[in-house]
Amino acid sequence: MKGKAAYRAALPLLVIALGASILLAVTIGSTKIPPQDVHKVVLYHLGLRGVGEPEGAVSDVVWLIRLPRLILAAGVGAALSVSGLVMQAVVRNPLADPYVLGVSSGSYLGAVLAILLGIGGAFGGNAAGVMAFIGAFAVSLSVAALASIGGRSSTVKLLLAGMAMSAVCSAFSNFIVYRTRDASSVQAVLHWMMGSLGAAQWRTNAAILFVVTLCTLFFYSQFRSLNLMLLGDEAAATLGTDARRRRIVYLLISALMVGFAVFSAGMIGFVGLVVPHAMRMLSGSDHRRLIPLCALSGAIFLVWADVLCRVVIPGAELPIGILTAMIGAPCFVYLMARRKYGFGGDA
């Protein structure tokens, strides 16, 4: 049992690696702070008052800026990876990612409406995020509804409905962007599209972590059905699972989780595509192993991606979506080039 042994070893290692990554990453930033001071702040806020009260400015940088951002990175990374994994099973296609069924264009439209037309101003500071969440979820609902017209949903109907909704939303968004004469707000849309974890706060983090944990646990509980889905609807039915009904439920729960990720960090591509495939290489196609593996490694991946974003250009920050694509795409090509892993098919 190669896959099983690898899994048993990898799981605790990944938990330790995630903890270590966050503790290491929190010492890295544009403001030079000695690592022992950084960890003093973390320990102090975690309730260990014995370490002594840290200096105010240092405390603010570490506790209010750096750490929330890393926690958000971990949460969003886990959300995108698990969601990518689930969507690949839902549409039974290894090329799927969290955004495949119109989520990206839906959230794009939401953000464009908020940033360029000021719709949703009542949602306050992160109106773009809220509108993007609404856009993503509304499009997923429409895709689910469209795919169910004329009988039960199939993977092909889902993909076609997703493409149609994507085209419509992109067209409207592009029209609005095209008609906007104000270059700076167009710049804002562009910036938003490329993703950033800069707006992280403890309060929203708590909500996001809660949703991501809940959704991930839900998908973990569905591992058997996810496995059966890979065999196709007919085989799944004869093995005791109504894949057609579950597919819609999974799609919506995945959209909820991705919606929260988009709300807090914009669009971050490639994580949800590359991480699931990397984990399949490690431990095979069994979702009982893949869900925890993807959640943990996705979290670690995005923590380090965010660190790189902050240090790669001195004095400036690279949008994380650009970085994940820059790292992710070559990784993906490497996976493809390794003949041993044929993405499951007969390569």
């Binding site: 095979g284 196609s285 499951g344 098919g345």
Partner: peptide
Amino acid sequence: YRESAKRVAVVAQHAPAGFDFT
């Protein structure tokens, strides 16, 4: 579906298209 799957098993031509199991 679970009950019927406990009573009837099927051997047809299905495969995990795009993915792989051992």
